[in-house]
Design a protein around this nucleic acid. Structure first.
Lengths: 218, 218
DNA sequence: TGTACATCAGTGAACGCGCGTTCACTGATGTAC
DNA sequence: TGTACATCAGTGAACGCGCGTTCACTGATGTAC
């Protein structure tokens, strides 16, 4: 599909063959380095070595392109969480194992945000939502499913009371998300790494306790 | 300073008298309705009824203007939190009162975000940080001080162990911030109001417990 | 009390930029006969 | 096995937009004498 001519990389054929993917990939790379603002249709085309107009054969426009990029970023986040979970050592005690799951997901979330701030910001960037076109259901996200499973398991083990089970996903998600955005994007971006790490551990500890324990406070 | 001539509001004098403030106020109004992207120097000048060039007598440029707007937004958030706290009934029991403080601050944070999404997003918008110009110290924020005081009080009352006191501000902040951004900006923007309210209550409960209780979990 | 003059705070026209998008087009591909 | 032709996937030039910003300017204000 490509060949080197006079020291320059050129397309061998007039037709690209996989332009839609190539554009999305290039646009994702732009997002990686500059966040959602950097996702520019013309620049993506430039990177691929194609005229800007060519993009319109595969996307209805800029909004269509960035939607794809956003989904890739969300998928990358989910994959990172899954990997963090897989990297740990399973515990034999089911209680410990359930907590490990929760902690790994939270840590994976935050680690991804810190490692790939551009992709993270893009995954949650503000796009003019198209009301008739359905938003990706969060229950379809593999990471969300793992989280829900971990919480279900905790309930089955008696670590979470049945009446306190609802909305636990949101509790966990909000905590990880807040931590990530404050450190990546926000006012806590400048705190020293050691403090940041301590705050992350402390926060994950606190939220796990908050989810697990019954409520003895008025 | 202003008079009505032929049914149109016109400046009575060539000099405005308070243009810097007027521009910041107009720009904040833009932020209120459209978030940080809507803070456009030319539009602010238009709203005030002044040429765009006039702004450069009072701001070095667009970045300077939006920095001021951002600070206003942060101040508005802090004020909202303070008001939420003041609106509640103080409890005689110091334990209950300390918890009330924590909850009111969190609730004020989230309520502000939901009531004024544009201002909230602007308060935390990504601005090219000027390294030599010092970022506003968060300990200067009145809301942050109230939070820290509430946590100190809890420690004094024995509700928080001394060794678990550090980073509690971050724990609380992250939770409220995550909740706010997910609901305002993010993937949870479409959940029904009843679910949203329940999730908020549940999350605040959980985080307060997570902060207060000692850790019986391995 | 008046007047010259420096300074301050506005004006309007214009520039350059890069974007998303449209247009009329052309080269490549595949299919019917 | 060739060939006509519809269709697909690219091209390059151009448009309009609104922005931030600069320029040379002018009207208003205040101050020294």
């Amino acid at each position: 599909m490509w060949r080197v001519t006079q020291g320059r990389l050129q397309r061998a054929s007039y037709h690209h063959g996989d332009l839609a993917n190539a554009l999305t990939r290039a646009a994702t790379e732009l997002a990686r380095h500059g966040g959602p603002e950097a996702v520019v249709l013309r620049e993506a085309a430039r990177q691929v070595g194609v005229s800007a107009t060519a993009a319109y054969r595969h996307f209805t426009g800029h909004g269509d392109l960035i939607r794809d990029v956003k989904q890739r970023c969300q998928a990358a986040l989910a994959e990172h969480m899954r990997a963090e979970l897989a990297a740990g050592v399973p515990a034999s005690d089911p209680h410990t194992e359930a907590v490990r799951h929760l902690r790994a997901l939270g840590l994976g979330y935050i680690r991804f945000a810190l490692a790939e701030p551009g992709l993270f910001r893009t995954a949650f960037c503000h796009t003019d939502s198209v009301p008739h076109e359905k938003e990706m259901d969060r229950s379809e996200s593999p990471a969300y499913a793992i989280l829900a499973d971990a919480l279900d398991e905790m309930m089955r083990l008696g670590m979470i009371d049945e009446d306190r089970r609802p909305y636990c996903e949101t509790v966990a998600w909000a905590t990880a998300h807040g931590l990530a955005t404050l450190f990546v994007d926000g006012p806590l971006a400048d705190v020293p790494v050691a403090d940041r790490e301590a705050a992350i551990v402390r926060t994950l500890d606190a939220i796990i306790e908050g989810i697990c324990r019954p409520a003895p406070i008025a």
